[in-house]
Design a protein around this nucleic acid. Sequence first.
DNA 1: AACACGTGGCA
DNA 2: TTGCCAAGTGT
Length: 322
Amino acid sequence: MTLPTHSAASVPSPSPSAPPAREGASLHGPVIAWYEANARDLPWRRPEAGAWGVMVSEFMLQQTPVARVLPVYEEWMRRWPRPADLAKEPSGEAVRAWGRLGYPRRALRLHGAAVAITERHGGDVPEHHAQLLALPGIGEYTAAAVASFAYGQRHAVLDTNVRRVLARAVSGEQFPPNATTAAERRLARSVLPEDEDTAARWAAASMELGALVCTAKGERCESCPLSDRCAWRLAGKPEHTGPPRRAQTYAGTDRQVRGKLLAVLREALEPVPQVTLDRVWHDPVQRARALDGLVADGLVEPLENGRYRLPGHRSFPPHQPR
DNA sequence: AACACGTGGCA
DNA sequence: TTGCCAAGTGT
């Protein structure tokens, strides 16, 4: 596997007089050129990361900022350089090494994906979108991202950054809809470069643009390669209308209690007695519900003696075809 | 379709 | 301090 090399010479540029053959043709060139000059040097973008490195990074980056992922990613790749290395560990080790990245079910699913890769794909991250999609924790976005970033394939990689870039540059809206729509997928496919290598560069470049320039708040239009043609900017940057983007509450929720319980178990080297867990939350009803949920999710293993620990053995459910 | 699911930085 | 936000997935 190789990361696409950066070469502006391979970026096709439409002739000045002819109208663009397709809607996205006027987007690729500027954005890819901008990317080649401004892309961050992230470890999972280096060739030595391999498909496994790309995949690990994608799991960690789901809803989690780059800065927080970096140190954990380095530790994981040092400890588990190949899928089989992770697969032979108990799943609880993945949860423990996940640290405070949040959404620890991702760790469990990444472990489950490593097991599946070892069993079904000979230890190599599969290259086909459908094979990736069948792995636990990999949805539409991550399957496209791994296929594109790791294997240079042509896929619409529609994450929150790209959705925002397209919403603004093409649709003239400040923000995309709350949930990804069929219209967005259609738009993303319509602006996808025909050439496979160019499509892979566009995927990485448009995502980086959304992450660094076309941000949710404090967008830096003066640094944007699309500023002269951005539909939203040309319309005077109208404020978002429509349904408010649903706020995510956290304080006092089961999620917070789960987080506190799991934090105790992550730090513990030995199984933890019930009474220790009882100290993390005042409400016994909510506390019990949170603990039951963690057990049901396979994040916590109850032992015969009334103690609890991170799962000591593989506990991910068998693969269910979608 | 709407929710649940962690965590911490920043304005 | 509160609210928003960060490369989503599964049910």
